[in-house]
Design a protein around this nucleic acid. Sequence first.
DNA 1: TTAATATACGGAACATTGTTCCGGTTAGCA
DNA 2: TGCTAACCGGAACAATGTTCCGTATATTAA
Lengths: 198, 198
Amino acid sequence: MADASRAAKAGGSAPRKRADARRNERALLDAATAVFATSGVEAPVREIASRAGVGVATIYRHFPTRADLIAAVYRHQVEACAEAGETLLAGGGSPYDALGRWVNRFVDFVATKHGLASVLQSDDPAFQSLHAYFLDRLVPVCSDLLRAAADAGEIRAGIDAYELMRGVGNLCIGAESDPRYDARRLVELLVAGLRRTA
Amino acid sequence: MADASRAAKAGGSAPRKRADARRNERALLDAATAVFATSGVEAPVREIASRAGVGVATIYRHFPTRADLIAAVYRHQVEACAEAGETLLAGGGSPYDALGRWVNRFVDFVATKHGLASVLQSDDPAFQSLHAYFLDRLVPVCSDLLRAAADAGEIRAGIDAYELMRGVGNLCIGAESDPRYDARRLVELLVAGLRRTA
DNA sequence: TTAATATACGGAACATTGTTCCGGTTAGCA
DNA sequence: TGCTAACCGGAACAATGTTCCGTATATTAA
């Protein structure tokens, strides 16, 4: 197992990349993480490449679109968020409460990543796959939470998880750069609006 | 008054532009209106210039920043929206109801202008003055409506007009291009969340 | 260890914008 | 009719995203 030459023993897995390729991929991921944190997720490609000490073409080789790079950088956190939703749902409290907590967690994640919220809503085709990734992973979680709350009679019917996620994501736009705007407060209002209207 | 040579009779008003300058300004406004409607408010400058039959420098001469052009194109509608708020407030109904109607009107305006909502929230300094214009004109109106509803005890306290406007604007982003996303519904939820809690 | 080859690399080159500059044109006026 | 200040158009410049191509190298087989 320690020997690198025995690759691809499992089914159709890729035939293992060259060592320099793996090194560069890691360097790019690290550089992108740092640059995204300071300059936002729309920072110039050249900046990321130079920080990683590689040429621009190397970025495109490893991450065909910017969406792939962003997804790779934040994958762990998205997964953690999705799993938190499942945990929250399983924990015995009120489903509406679980929904509220989960939404807050999502906001905490998105609103602290400079520019991520905008990009998630952008209709630029370059970001379509990022959009799809977030949605595929999180909408089902949100949907479960929503259904549970609806079944418990805590919220009004007719709310779609996709729409709610987009709404929450939208409310997070610009949250980092404007001290007068608190996305959490607005999202709280939105979630409060879900409550059953008696 | 019909004679053009007697200009600037009132105080510091501009000394009247040349005829070709006025003609071009009008042509640019018309072209921008058309292009914004089809390609969105972020359409390339060259597209607007060529549609107006002028060079690009002429755009910059008349509208130093894109924000100025956008503001000029939508000024009438913004004014109308602001005035509608005052009317709604004066009309004797429930203040909360008036607020809801006014917000809906604002959404109808913003959500039908391709890309306007995004640009309104953008932190690109080029749009800062547009941002300021919308806010200066509409936040006071919203503030009055909000205060009236608060005074009537219909909504919870502590809601800031600026924050609400930004939230509503944010919710309008992407509303034109996604049939699964209905900004009006989300905004309705947000406004419902304003209701006094018990 | 060495040589062959597929893989990966870097940076130049190209395309698409926004923005500014400059020489020529023209409206307004005497 | 001619002068001049204002205006005009398009070329030129700058900042990006994206692609191409000759070169370098990791890997493997002899």
